[in-house]
Amino acid sequence: MGSYLLLAWTWARASAQYRTSFAVSIVSSFAINALDAVAIGIVFLHVTTLGGFSLREVMFLYGTGGVAFAVADTLFGNIERLSQHIKAGTFDTMLIRPVSPFVQMAADGFGAHRIGRLAQAVIVLSLALPVVPWSRAWMVPLMILTGVVIFTAVFTLGAALQFLLVDAPEIANAFTYGGVTLTQYPLSVYGDQLVRAVTFIVPLAFVNWQPALYVLDRPDPLGLPAWFRFAAPLAALLLAGCAALAWRAGIRRYRSTGS
C-alpha cells in the first residue's frame, strides 16, 4: 500500500510536468466516456421509461456503476497492460523488485488524467441523487465501495487471463469495459440468461443492480431472494478471492519471453 502511493505519486508528478497534454488527456477521457451518457439522454427523448426505470433512475445506475468503475480503473486499471509488459520484457523487471508486480503495474505511469472518466460519472450520479430516499442513502457509498472491489477483481481476472493469452489481451476488454457498459442500464432490459450469468458467474449484478433494487425499492424481475440486495459485499469478497488465486497461478505459469 505504501509502495503503491509513493510510486503513484512519483508518476503523477512526472505526468503533470507536461501541462498541455495533461489537460488534453483529462478533457479527452471526460468526453469519450460522456458519449455513453449522451446516448442515454437520446434514448430518453423517445421513451419515458426503459426496462421500467425512469431517466433519473437509469442515471443513478449509470452513475454508481460508472463511479465504481472509474475508481477501480484509476487505481488499478493499468494492470490490463500486462501483455504489453510481458512482450516488452518489463514484466521480468517487475519480478526482480521487492514489491508485488501487481502494485508496480498498477502504479506504473499513473497519471491524474484518468480523473476525466471519474468526473463525468460523478456529475451524472449527483444529478441522479434526488431519486434516493434519505432512509436508504446509506447503501450508496457501500455499493460504490463493493463496486470498486468487484471491478478491480474483474481487471485482475482479465490480466490473469493474459498470462495464457499473451497475444490476445483484448479478450479482457469484454469483461472490464463490457462489464461497465452492462451496469449502465437496468438489468431488466437484458435477457434472463444473461442476468443469471452476471448474478451467479461473474457477479456484475452486485455492482449496482441488486443494491439499487433496495435503494429504489423495486421488485426483482427474476424473483431472486430479497437478501441478494445486501449480498454485494459477499459477492465482492468471493470474486476478489478468485482473482487473487488466478493472479498467483498466472505468475507461477509465467514464461518469460526472449533472452
Partner: peptide
C-alpha cells in the same frame, strides 16, 4: 538466470 532471480518458476 531467470530461475535464480525468481522470474521463472
Amino acid at each position: 538466470i531467470k530461475m535464480l532471480t525468481g522470474i521463472l518458476t
